[in-house]
Design a protein around this nucleic acid. Structure first.
Lengths: 181, 181
DNA sequence: CTCAAATAATTCGTATCCGAACAATTAGAA
DNA sequence: TTCTAATTGTTCGGATACGAATTATTTGAG
C-alpha cells in the first residue's frame, strides 16, 4: 500500500489551483555559471537516453546495453577476469558480477576458474555469444552513430575532445593541496 | 549460494589465445569511426563519475545526487506535480515517485493532494529541505565546476555546445520511413 | 446522466550501479 | 613452516531507473 499521503497532512493546500504561481521569496536562481547548468542538464539527458536505449535493446535483442558492452569487451579482449573486464567497461567489479551472471544464464558467456591461481575467474564468450554479436546492434544509439558520421570531421573531433575534457575534469582527483606551500 | 561456476562447464577454452578470429559473415572489425568508440567510452566514464559522486554525496550529506537534483528543481520551480518534476529532471515519473518517497521520509519535501483535481500531487520543499539546500554541495563534481571555471570561456562554450549536440543526436527521433511500401 | 476514454500517480518486475563486508586463495615475512 | 597480509570474486544493502500494468479520478460522448 505505502499509505500514500494521509500522514503529515497537516499541510493543507493553501489555495485551489493546480497552477502554481511562484512566491516572492524564491531565491533568484543564480544560474551558476550557466554553462555549468547546461552541462549538468546535458549529462542527465545523455544518461537518460542511454538507459532508454538499453531498454529498447532488451526488448528487441534479448540483451541490455551493459550486457552487450561486456560481451563486446570479452570478444575483443579475449577471456578476461572479472576485475579486468570491469576495468574495460568502466564499472565496479560488483556490478560486473551480476552482468556476467545474466550473460551466463543466457548462455552467451561462461566462467572458468583459473587452474593456476584458483582465485581468478576467466570469462569468455560462447559461440552463441559470438553469433549474437555478429548481428547485434550498436551499444549506442544508431541515430547518434549515423548523425555523427554525417558531421564534418572537424566537428567530430571537437565533440570527442570536449567529452574527453569533461571526463578528465570529472575524474580529476581532488588530492592536491597537501603542502600548500 | 548462486552455485558459482560448475554448470555449463562443457565449454572449454578452444585455444589459448585472447585474440578472437571473426567468422566469414561477421562484419570486419572496423573500429567504427574511432570517434564513435571514444565518445561511447567517454559517456560511460561520465556516467560512472556521476554515480560515484552520488555515493560520496550520500555519505557526506545524507542525500544522493538524484535526490538533490529533485530538491533543487522543486526549490526553483515551486511546488510541482510528479509528472512535471519528472520532466524537469529528465527522469521517468515512476523513478521520481521513489525519489520523492525518500525525500519525504527525510522530511525534506512533502506531498499534497490537489484540492481541485484530486489526481494531482503537489510536491514542495520543507524548511528542512531549504536549509539543506542552503549549504548543500553541487549536484555535480566540485572538481568539474572548478576546472570549468578556470577554463577560457571559449572552451566552456565549446564544451557546452558539444554536449548539447550529443544530446540532440541521441534524442533525435527515428520516426521517418512510415509507408515504405 | 452514464459509462468509456483520458489522465495522474503508484506499484511491480527487472536490471543496473556502487561501496562495504565476506570468503577463498595465494604470497610473503618471521 | 606458519601466520598475516594482499588479492579476487562474491554477496549484501540501498538507491536509481525504466516500461508495463493498476488504481483513482476526471472528462467527454452519447
Amino acid at each position: 500500500m505505502r499509505n500514500v499521503l494521509r500522514k503529515k497532512s497537516g499541510v493543507s493546500a493553501p489555495e485551489g489551483g493546480g497552477e502554481v504561481i511562484l512566491g516572492p521569496g524564491v531565491t533568484p536562481p543564480v544560474p551558476k555559471s550557466s554553462y555549468e547548468l547546461r552541462i549538468l542538464q546535458s549529462i542527465r539527458r545523455i544518461i537518460r537516453a542511454v538507459e532508454i536505449h538499453s531498454h529498447k535493446l532488451a526488448q528487441e535483442h534479448e540483451i541490455t546495453g551493459p550486457q552487450l558492452g561486456c560481451l563486446l569487451a570479452l570478444a575483443k579482449g579475449g577471456p578476461l577476469t572479472i576485475t579486468h573486464l570491469a576495468r574495460m567497461v568502466y564499472q565496479s567489479p560488483s556490478t560486473v558480477v551480476g552482468i556476467v551472471d545474466r550473460l551466463a544464464d543466457k548462455g552467451l558467456a561462461v566462467r572458468q576458474r583459473g587452474s593456476k591461481d584458483r582465485r581468478l575467474v576467466q570469462v569468455c564468450v560462447t559461440e552463441a555469444g559470438e553469433a549474437l554479436i555478429a548481428n547485434a546492434p550498436s551499444p549506442l544509439q544508431e541515430t547518434l552513430a549515423e548523425s555523427l558520421k554525417n558531421l564534418p570531421e572537424l566537428e567530430q573531433v571537437s565533440i570527442t575532445l570536449a567529452l574527453e575534457k569533461v571526463v578528465d575534469m570529472m575524474e580529476a582527483r581532488k588530492i592536491e593541496a597537501p603542502p600548500v606551500l
